[in-house]
Nucleic acid binder design. Sequence first.
DNA 1: GCTGATTACATAATCTATTTAGGTATCGTA
DNA 2: TACGATACCTAAATAGATTATGTAATCAGC
Lengths: 116, 116
Amino acid sequence: MVKVAAGSLYGTLNLLILQSLAEDGPLHGLGIANRIQAVSREVLRIEEGALYPALHRLQKGGLLEARWGTSDKGRRAKLYELTAEGRERLAAELGNWRTHTEAVGRVLGNEAAGGS
Amino acid sequence: MVKVAAGSLYGTLNLLILQSLAEDGPLHGLGIANRIQAVSREVLRIEEGALYPALHRLQKGGLLEARWGTSDKGRRAKLYELTAEGRERLAAELGNWRTHTEAVGRVLGNEAAGGS
DNA sequence: GCTGATTACATAATCTATTTAGGTATCGTA
DNA sequence: TACGATACCTAAATAGATTATGTAATCAGC
């Protein structure tokens, strides 16, 4: 079977995480995943095996800070928050995402993406 | 350095190739790459190391057919063309791409992507 | 007729992030 | 106390892109 362009998160997961934290203040891992799933209307689904490594990468890169706290369901949870650097990077990468999808849109014949 | 969402083609390359062939009739490998680069206004750049394996995958999957011919510059070149199956898959995957980018758009707070 | 640049196809090694598939611990509840 | 839900975590396998080469044929200039 040839996969063409699945529902893969490849390349977008970090962006989705950063944006979720920017909008919804501190969140814990599963909270982020659940929020993305809900806001995307169940189209995007974050596997835990992708989620946690991504959070750790972003934290090591200085884009996130973590502290232990409590989830909305009263459980012990690790709460993540954007750093100033994370906020800067989010802004820059939002621009990249738009540039990239508009470029793909032009190739796919999407007149609305032409911009200019 | 933490990469967030680069100009990666991950997942979109096959789609770009199929669409290019659907619009511009038979094309050879470098011709496809050049077309994508031009139409995207130099935003997308297809490395040969990604291009040829992708073409071979698509051909093995029955989505493309190839024959030897001549490029627009008069050189010997392998010309690729969509099969009927390739055309079907392109239509289906165009839908997937839109669904996926709209979903990401909703998470990123893009009201225009909300649709419905 | 030789040399170097361009066109064109191709593949191997490496990299990176995702998927798949496990595992641990805690808490509520039946 | 056993089960399900919440929450975190990691390892192995997978897949597709990037980087780096290699080959061959054609063309322009000398």
